[in-house]
């Protein structure tokens, strides 16, 4: 009787362990959900100055074919310290991650970010072209 109980417990714990380790909902290396969505684009774009106030002049022009984001910033904006903010298609993520202010002062070599689709299969690299408003 005692032997049977012990065997049952061992079997039960093995089943529980297997269930806990079995593959459920897939997540990527960032712990983000991998979905079936293939949409992969930038839907809107914002640039903030050091005072965390927008420096855009008008809306950014996003070309999802040419993969460019063109934005004009106010005269006198310090291009070395701008905080970009992207809005992406559902379930997408951005690489590299934005962790703080970014230097956009090298206008001949626009900064680039790659948008990765929800299923993590489609990748599109956007160039962000910043121009400064004239006085």
């Amino acid at each position: 009787m005692k032997k049977n109980i012990i065997i049952s417990l061992i079997v039960l714990s093995a089943v529980c362990t297997w269930a806990a380790c079995s593959k459920g909902i897939p997540v990527d290396e960032d712990g983000l959900l991998i979905t079936t969505r293939k949409d992969c684009y930038v839907s809107s774009f914002e640039l903030l100055g050091t005072d965390y106030v927008s420096v855009r002049v008008g809306a950014a022009t996003i070309d999802t074919s040419a993969l460019t984001v063109k934005v004009t910033v106010q005269f006198g904006t310090d291009l070395k310290n701008l905080y970009p903010q992207f809005s992406l298609a559902q379930d997408c993520k951005l690489s590299p991650k934005i962790t703080g202010f970014v230097d956009f002062s090298d206008t001949l070599n626009p900064r680039k970010w790659t948008v990765i689709s929800g299923d993590r299969q489609v990748k599109k690299t956007y160039s962000v072209v910043v121009s400064v408003q004239h006085r």
Partner: peptide, 21 residues
Amino acid sequence: YTTSAFNHALVAPAADTTYLP
């Protein structure tokens, strides 16, 4: 200016003259 938002500014004397019109 009608073309840009210059308004009130603090500028170092050695700054580019664009900012000291």
